[in-house]
Computed example of a mutant assay.
Amino acid sequence: MGRSRLMTRLVALGVEEEFHVVDLVSRRLTPQAHVVLDGLPDKSFSAELQQAVVETNSTPTPDLAALRADLVELRRRLITGAEPHGLGIVGSGTAPLHGTEGFELTADERYEYLLDSYQFIAREQFICGGQVHVEITDRDLAVLVAQRVQPWLPVLLAVSGSSPYWFETDSGYASSRTLAWQRWPTAGPLGPFASAAEYDQAVADLVTSGVIDDRGMVYFDIRLSAHVPTMELRVCDAVPRVDDMVLLAGLFRALVVRETDAVEAGAPPRFDQRPALLRAATWRAARSGLSGDLISPLTGKPGPAGLLLETLLEELRPTLEALGDWETVSALALEAVRLGGSAARQRAAYRKKGQATDVVDLLLRETAEG
């Protein structure tokens, strides 16, 4: 049943990527996003809270090859707009060379509210994420599917881990961005919710509490979009390699589609959904990335990251094959494991000469490669 449904219905997906703006001479983070964005269309390019960050938005598509081509073109346009001004574009969870001198708030009433309300959390928002949107029109279904997908999100976080450096010091984590992000009051696991009405009431209660100002400030690891009929993956670091972003998008869509079929077939949830265990698994992924153990949602026990990613691939194989994504996603997953993750590559670049500028050069190069 699930397979025939997939064969007749295309499931669109889209990606938002955030990038750091760096000075090409010093290789340091610099608050000049406005210079890069000048002349670029608002539809595809936008500012963020910090003037040192820019965001791109891909065009929704059901095709991973088309998504990849779009992401490459968006990066190319950003880089082309930055280089004449002596600026570079870096895709990673944090920039290796950054400090408080990079802080400059983007002129916007919403961002001013964030700074006033959250203080140092907003001031230290020198982080970039990669978000994936997958089409799902039934919101009651989406709430149930999101909770079933959630136990696998730490594996996707591990694939994306690209922020070992925090304020120019090795944090000891593959994703220091995750630790910084989790300081926001609504960040973390979703649910439990039995319906869209329960989800919406919880969001309304958060707004009523005054802790957040509107629905857009719900920062669950996976959430329902407040504006369009999609489910959003929000747990991942930004990544330098475009192929890793395509891998994350392909895996996330397959998880959503598989669990949609399972809910519609009446299959019960397979995994423990306790928030404490979900947070522990997320912490483990942020700590280890692809270089250590992750917590398996199948057993609750630690195991090598590469093996758990392989397990996820095999679990998703029927869905990936039905979507026409198996060859692409499996090849990208094998390559990601072979390369060892961005955090490990950054540390290796630093060890060669002990120069953080070499790490920035690596990230500049990988971000630009199509």
Score class of each variant (00 low, 15 high):
residue 273 Q to I: 12
residue 232 E to I: 03
residue 94 T to D: 06
residue 233 L to S: 03
residue 202 A to L: 11
residue 366 E to M: 10
residue 38 D to I: 01
residue 28 R to F: 07
residue 278 L to W: 07
residue 36 V to C: 08
residue 208 T to L: 15
residue 273 Q to F: 13
residue 151 P to T: 02
residue 16 E to V: 08
residue 47 A to Q: 14
residue 116 D to V: 09
residue 246 V to F: 01
residue 35 V to S: 08
residue 135 E to N: 05
residue 143 V to M: 06
residue 88 G to A: 00
residue 168 E to D: 12
residue 330 S to C: 12
residue 49 L to Y: 09
residue 135 E to S: 13
residue 274 R to E: 10
residue 8 T to P: 08
residue 219 Y to R: 10
residue 368 A to R: 12
residue 35 V to R: 13
residue 224 L to N: 00
residue 358 D to Q: 11
residue 223 R to F: 08
residue 164 P to W: 01
residue 114 L to Y: 14
residue 279 R to C: 07
residue 74 L to I: 03
residue 318 P to C: 08
residue 222 I to W: 00
residue 273 Q to S: 15
residue 36 V to W: 04
residue 297 P to V: 02
residue 369 E to K: 15
residue 326 W to T: 02
residue 24 L to S: 08
residue 172 G to K: 06
residue 154 P to L: 02
residue 150 Q to S: 05
residue 301 K to C: 12
residue 68 R to G: 04
residue 299 T to H: 03
residue 54 V to Y: 08
residue 88 G to T: 00
residue 132 V to I: 13
residue 132 V to F: 05
residue 9 R to Q: 15
residue 294 L to V: 04
residue 98 H to M: 15
residue 312 L to D: 00
residue 225 S to E: 03
residue 301 K to P: 05
residue 226 A to N: 11
residue 3 R to E: 12
residue 293 D to T: 04
residue 201 Q to F: 11
